[in-house]
Design a binder for these strands. Structure first.
Lengths: 346, 346
DNA sequence: TCACTCCGTGTGACCGGTCACAATCTCGGC
DNA sequence: GCCGAGATTGTGACCGGTCACACGGAGTGA
C-alpha cells in the first residue's frame, strides 16, 4: 500500500473517518461496538479500518478514558521458580484479556526504595499485583495508595479474609501440614524445618502448618533453621542440621533450599533417605531429576498467577461482584528423598 | 492534608500552576529542567509541586511528546534461568533510567501468534527488546516493523555485525569452545553434545564452538543429541547417550539439561565423573550444589540484559552514536562433574 | 398534520501534558 | 532616555482518543 518510503505515522480515527466518509465519533462507536450504528455504516468503517491498518492507540485511550488495560506486577526476584511461575501465569491471563503486563522489581526492602517502586508502578496507570511473599513485597503491598486497584499474592493468611478481599494464595499451611505428616508417618520422631525468609515477623504459613502437624502427633518441636531463598541458604542450613545426629527428617522451605540441604548432607556423609529424609516445596522442574529425586509438595503457581489476574480484572472492571478464583490445592509428590528413619531398635 | 474522604484525582500541571501563580507552561519548564526560568519562580513552582504531591502523568507525556520511556521485553519462557536473568538485568537498568518495563510472552512460535504478540508489544508505544534464542524469538525479531526501536538478544552471530547494529550477545561460541577444550584436555577422546533447541535451522553458536574445538583437536565428531530446555529433555538425551559405552564426555546446552543428563547416567549406573564427564552452560544457582557439582561455563545474563537496555536506550534517545556495551566474557568453572576418562590402558 | 420519541450521526470540550510562537520584562550601551 | 538583545513568561493548538450533548430524520399516536 504505502510505497512511499516515509515512515508514515499510524492512522488515527480521524484518518479512518475521512476514508469512510463519516465523523470520527462514528468510528469511535464502531471500534467500541456501540449498538447505535447502522449496519451499512459500520461495514464501511470496518473496511476503512483494515484498509488503513488502524489500531487504536492505547496511550490515547488511557488518557482520555482513564481505563488502562494494564497490570504492573511488583515482585522481588523474578529468577526464583515460584515467582517466575506466578508471573508467567499472570502474563498468560493478561494476554488473554489483552492487558499489557508491566513489571517492577523490588531490589531492597528499605522503605524508601519500596515506596519509590510503588510510585513507579502507580505511574503506569493500571492495576497492581503485588507478590507479597517476602518483607519487600509485604511492605510494598502496604504502601500502595488506597485508591489504586491492587491484588496481593500472599501467604495463607492466618484468618482467611472474606471472599471479596483482593488477595489470592495457595494453601501453604496445608502443604506444610501434608509434607510433615508424610514424614512423621514414615516413622520419624520429629521433623526439622529449614525455612525460607518469612514475609513477616510473625511465623509464616508454612511454619505454622509444620508446627500443627508436629503438635497433633505429639512430636518434639525445634526451632526452624533460617535459610534464604536459594541453594546457598539451604546449604548453610543443611550443614547446621547435619551436625546433629538426632536429625532424621528435614522439611525445606522450597526445592532450591532442599537442593542445598541435600548437598550439605552429602558432604557430611549422611545418606538420603537412608539416614535422613528430605522434602521440599513447589515441585520445581529440577525436583524430579535430582539424585535422590525430591519428595515435595506441588504448588500451582501458574494457576495462582492466573487467579491473581482474574481477581484484579474483577476489581478494575467493577463487574457486579468480585468472585473468588479457585487455585488448585497442594499435592504431595513422594519421591526418593524420603523414607523410613534408620532403625535403632536392636 | 486532604482530610476530605473523596479520592481526589492527582494534581495536574495546571493545578500546580494555579497554586504557584504562574502559567502551566512555566510548570512544564520546571519539571523539564528548562534553563530559562528565574530562580525565584522555579522555587515557587517546586514548592507547589511537592505541596500538592504532583507527579507527571506518564500517559499524557507519552501522548503529547511521543517519547514513552518504556521497554517491552518479548521472550518465550520467563521461568528458565537464563531468560529470567536477562529480564532481571533489563529491569535493573531500566529502573535506573526510570523506564517502565513491559513483558510479553511468546507462547507459540506459530507465525500468527508471534505477529499478534509483536503487535501487542508495539501498542505499548515504547522500545522493544526481543530475546531471540529460540525459534519464537527469532521470528518475533523478524516481525518487528522497521520503524520501531528494537534490540535483539541473540546467539553469537556467525559474522559479528558492526558496532552499530542493535544486537547484543554473550560469546556462546567461545563458551562452548572453552568447555569442549577443557574436556578434551582431560584426555577424553571426544565430547558429545546434548543441545538445547536451536534458534535457527542452522547450527547454533554453541554447536559451532563445540565443533571447532573437536576439529582442532582432530577428535571424532558426532551429531548433537537434540534436547529441550529443561531437565526432562536432558534426561531423554542422557538415556540415549548412556547406552553408548564409548561416550565418556558430554557437554550440555545448559545446566538444567545437564541435570537431566546426570540423572539418566545415574539411572544407567554410569558414574560421574568416574566413567563419564558432564559439563553445562550458564552456571545457574543450582550448578554448584548438585552432586556431583557441575562443571559449567558462567555466562553473565544479567549483564547481557543491562547491555541490551543500554543499547536500546542509545537507540531511542538518538544520542550522538550508538555505543557498543560490553558484556563480560564467559568463564569456565570447573567442578566435580568433569575428570579424566576411565583408563583403558591395561 | 403536529408534537414526541427514538435512531443514527455530528460537534465541541476535555484528558494532561508538549510544542511553536508571541508577548512582556530587564538590562547594557549610546 | 531610548533601543535592541536576551531572558522570562504566557497563549493557543495539538497528540488521539472519549464523553456529553445537540441535531436532523423516520416512525408513531392523537
Amino acid at each position: 500500500m504505502n510505497m512511499t518510503g516515509h515512515t508514515k505515522r499510524p492512522a488515527s480515527i480521524r484518518d479512518v473517518a475521512r476514508a469512510a466518509g463519516v465523523s470520527y465519533q462514528t468510528v469511535s462507536r464502531v471500534i467500541n461496538d456501540h449498538p447505535s450504528v447502522k449496519q451499512s455504516t459500520r461495514e464501511r468503517v470496518v473496511a476503512a479500518i483494515d484498509e488503513l491498518g488502524f489500531r487504536r492507540n492505547a496511550t490515547a485511550l488511557a488518557l482520555a478514558s482513564g481505563r488502562t488495560k494494564s497490570v504492573t506486577v511488583l515482585t522481588s526476584n523474578t529468577t526464583h521458580y515460584g515467582y517466575a511461575s506466578i508471573l508467567q501465569g499472570i502474563e498468560e491471563a493478561a494476554r488473554a484479556a489483552s492487558y499489557a503486563v508491566g513489571i517492577g522489581v523490588l531490589e531492597s526492602d528499605e522503605d524508601s526504595a519500596v515506596a519509590a517502586e510503588v510510585q513507579r508502578a502507580a505511574d503506569a496507570g493500571g492495576g497492581l499485583i503485588v507478590i507479597a511473599y517476602d518483607p519487600a513485597g509485604v511492605r510494598a503491598l502496604g504502601a500502595v495508595p488506597g485508591d489504586l486497584p491492587v491484588v496481593g499474592v500472599v501467604e495463607t493468611p492466618a484468618t482467611p479474609p472474606g471472599g471479596d478481599r483482593p488477595w489470592v494464595w495457595t494453601d501453604d499451611r496445608e502443604a506444610a501440614y501434608q509434607a510433615t505428616r508424610h514424614l512423621l508417618s514414615l516413622g520419624h520422631e520429629t521433623v526439622h524445618y529449614a525455612a525460607i525468609p518469612s514475609s513477616t515477623r510473625r511465623t509464616s504459613a508454612r511454619t505454622s502448618g509444620w508446627r500443627q502437624a508436629l503438635r497433633e502427633a505429639g512430636a518434639p518441636e525445634h526451632r526452624p533453621v533460617q535459610g534464604s531463598w536459594g541453594p546457598a541458604g539451604g546449604h548453610a542450613a543443611g550443614r547446621q542440621l547435619a551436625q546433629d545426629p538426632s536429625v532424621t527428617a528435614i522439611l525445606c522451605g522450597n526445592d532450591d533450599l532442599a537442593l542445598g540441604v541435600l548437598r550439605a548432607l552429602y558432604e557430611a556423609g549422611r545418606s538420603v533417605p537412608g539416614e535422613v529424609s528430605v522434602a521440599g516445596f513447589d515441585d520445581a522442574p529440577h525436583a524430579a531429576y535430582l539424585t535422590p529425586s525430591l519428595t515435595t509438595v506441588r504448588l500451582d503457581f501458574t494457576g495462582l498467577g492466573r487467579a491473581a489476574f482474574a481477581l484484579l480484572h474483577d476489581v478494575v472492571e467493577e463487574s457486579a461482584r468480585i468472585a473468588p478464583h479457585p487455585v488448585s490445592v497442594p499435592e504431595l509428590v513422594v519421591r526418593e528423598s524420603s523414607g523410613p528413619p534408620p532403625s535403632t531398635d536392636h
